[in-house]
Design a protein around this nucleic acid. Sequence first.
DNA 1: CTGTTAGCGCCTTCAT
DNA 2: ATGAAGGCGCTAACAG
Lengths: 343, 343
Amino acid sequence: MSVTIRDVAHHAEVGLGTVSRVLNNSPLVSVATRERVLQAIAELNFVPNQSARRLSMGKTLTIGVIIPFFTRPSFTPRLSGVESALSETHFDLLISNVDIKSRRDDCFRGFTRRNRVDGLLVISLPPVDQEIPLLSNAAVPVVLIDVNDSALTGLHRITVDDVAGSKRATEHLIQLGHRRIGMVGDYLDTPFNFTSTRDRYWGYRQALQEADIPFTPSYFCEGEHGRHEARHMAHHLLTMEERPTAIFATSDTQALGVLEAARELDLSIPNDLSVMGYDDIEMAEYLQLTTTRQLLFESGQRGAELLLELIATPESYDTPVHITLPTELIVRGTTAPPCGVLP
Amino acid sequence: MSVTIRDVAHHAEVGLGTVSRVLNNSPLVSVATRERVLQAIAELNFVPNQSARRLSMGKTLTIGVIIPFFTRPSFTPRLSGVESALSETHFDLLISNVDIKSRRDDCFRGFTRRNRVDGLLVISLPPVDQEIPLLSNAAVPVVLIDVNDSALTGLHRITVDDVAGSKRATEHLIQLGHRRIGMVGDYLDTPFNFTSTRDRYWGYRQALQEADIPFTPSYFCEGEHGRHEARHMAHHLLTMEERPTAIFATSDTQALGVLEAARELDLSIPNDLSVMGYDDIEMAEYLQLTTTRQLLFESGQRGAELLLELIATPESYDTPVHITLPTELIVRGTTAPPCGVLP
DNA sequence: CTGTTAGCGCCTTCAT
DNA sequence: ATGAAGGCGCTAACAG
């Protein structure tokens, strides 16, 4: 059916092993024979069969990545980073988008065995307790990206200090003179249990506390992720009796919803209301949104790079690698001192 | 090393073939033995080796997709559509992001052979002449998405009538009373040769012609894709002596750049300038951008569905399938009659 | 340096 | 309904 290594061997009048050597850049081939084989390969238009190589080598030559909601603007750059790190290599990229819980569980189980992938990247999805040993004893190396949980110290991770980033963001608002600061975020408890959501919540709480501003539960709104949902939450906050003068959205996407709500209510930004996002997605700059930048692309890239090293030389990594990426406050146009207050 | 079908056979005290049959849901197994095998599988925690299956079956159980710039907001939904169609199946999704020409060529060659993928989806990338036979005679079925070229009638395709969509968009502007209509778009000629770019250009030209508005070359700007580049082009247009009263950007992303340029120049939208986008990406609604909606997600989904059918029953598709997806003009807030002109 | 051989783990006839 | 045997295309270890 298809031309095989055997045909090439015949054609080049060499042994079958020699062809294999040429294919794998073995130095144990004379220049002359190598030339001959290469030519035969070209003439026959031969391409090695991946499945056969993989079976024979006991490797899959592919990297798996488990990522939730890969179309969200904050996930795409992460994926892109992974892709860029892998594009130089011969590894295939097997992406599993999980947006329902059951798929998530399947992927965790399926990918931790050797015969699916040679290494696994998990993005934003913290393993539950019983899965931790699964990952740390996995047949293949695993790197967690954007999963910040102290129970995970046994695993390789690329994380962001969201508590600090969020605290810093809140402090910015406080320094501007705001005291009534609302928060619009994802549900703290979801089937996926994103750690970033909670970390950002705690950063906010900490900043308030250190500034001696009491936490007002009614200023904290949690809901489904998304612009529309955020708009509703913000609308609710902004029509309260004593409405917040600033709203911190835990993602830029949600900040857009807040801006929409403000528009509906004819509140001018930043005079009537300060709005703060998180992530610094592409659109944030366009919208002049004050936000906290995290290195989304880099997180994917470095995670993938680490994974590649783990695959290449597992022995040099007996202790888990933990890289923390910095965040940066990006002050743009949606934050200002509250009405009537001078800095 | 890993538990194999052989171990299962031993454990269940059956032949090795029987285990295979159970694995493949063959009806040729008695309920009793099936139970026994299933239990052995569970007890041994056996998972079949993909590479081995693939080699043995001569299938790869994976679908390849070649997509350029997969982080662009108009490509992500297409990919998402593909993913959604595949998530129900047992097919793996092998994504190749090509953003440089050489990778593109490699992918075209590499993926058209049987041993890489069982089917190929090509998004937005028209094959060059010499590649057409490669694709139509490919060892595996191929479906082109968003590639609109009359030379491609021999291939299965999901397309959008961009000429019509673009013409309609331009007509909208004309009907509002605009006569000086600028266009900001991608380079017409690029290494990738996106057909949509050219189609949109021609739709624009056609609409002008039918309305007896002469085409003004200086009103047409082409450049690298992206918001910033579009901003520069728009800036140029808007500082001309007789500047356009409306600008049609050939993508929403570029429309954002146009809006930015208008902001810089203190032009109010839509009074001083009408802006029209294309695609209807997620952000368009938020920005109240008038645009042309195309079914991005559906294009990916239907392409993948078609491909799956082609793989399953190739014999029932002796003649190429060509599905054209509709576009829809979405009038929002960035277009209005030109200053001083009543509709 | 090169040819030969024995698997890699599974599917698929072929007998039974 | 079931077991045994051959082969998918390649790599790697071996002998020369």
